[in-house]
Amino acid sequence: MKERYASTVEYVDRYGKAIKELMVYTQFGKKPTIGDFTESFKDQGLEVELRDFTNMIFKPIDPVSTPVISLRIIRTLKDFTYSYSAKR
């Protein structure tokens, strides 16, 4: 089983700032980890690494290949409307 969290993310790119929503999936009963966030960004085509743990700021590994300058997690809330059960 998995749980879903909705995160509000500030995207800063070469064109300005934007606030977007990011869905983060975790194992049942666990809270999102740094790896869960990087995996969610990777699913969107962004290879990032954590640069500032306190402020949850991620930056691209290869900044030349993407217009994104930084990503900051503003807040993360559990999505209680989501239910997923993986069949084995």
Rank of each mutant, 00 (worst) to 15 (best):
I73K: 00
K78R: 15
D36W: 12
L71Y: 01
I57C: 00
P60H: 04
G35W: 05
T66K: 11
N55I: 01
S85R: 12
E21I: 11
Y84V: 04
Y11D: 09
Y82L: 01
R72G: 00
I73T: 02
G45S: 10
E47N: 14
S7Y: 07
R51K: 12
T38Y: 09
V64G: 04
M23K: 13
R51T: 13
P63H: 11
K31F: 02
Y5L: 04
I34S: 09
T81S: 12
R75S: 14
K20W: 13
Q44I: 06
S70N: 07
I61G: 03
M1D: 04
L46S: 06
K20V: 11
V12Q: 08
G16D: 09
S83I: 03
F37R: 06
L77M: 10
Q27W: 02
T33E: 08
K31R: 04
T8Q: 04
V48G: 09
G45P: 10
F53E: 11
T33Q: 08
L77I: 11
G35I: 04
S65R: 11
S85K: 14
D79R: 01
A6N: 10
R75E: 12
S7L: 03
K17R: 14
F53Y: 05
V24K: 06
E49H: 13
Y82D: 03
K31T: 07
A86L: 13
K31Q: 02
E21R: 12
T33F: 01
E21A: 12
K2Q: 11
E21F: 09
L46W: 09
I57M: 01
V12L: 08
A18D: 08
P32K: 00
V9H: 02
S70G: 05
T33P: 04
V68C: 09
T54P: 00
G16R: 14
V12G: 06
S65T: 05
Q44F: 10
E39I: 03
L50T: 02
E39Q: 15
S70L: 15
M56E: 01
D79N: 11
E39A: 15
F37P: 02
R72Y: 02
S85F: 14
L46I: 07
S40L: 03
T66F: 14
N55P: 04
T66E: 05
I74A: 01
E21C: 06
G35K: 07
F37M: 07
P63E: 09
T8I: 05
K59L: 15
R4D: 03
F58I: 13
G16L: 09
D62S: 06
K2M: 15
R14Y: 10
A6E: 02
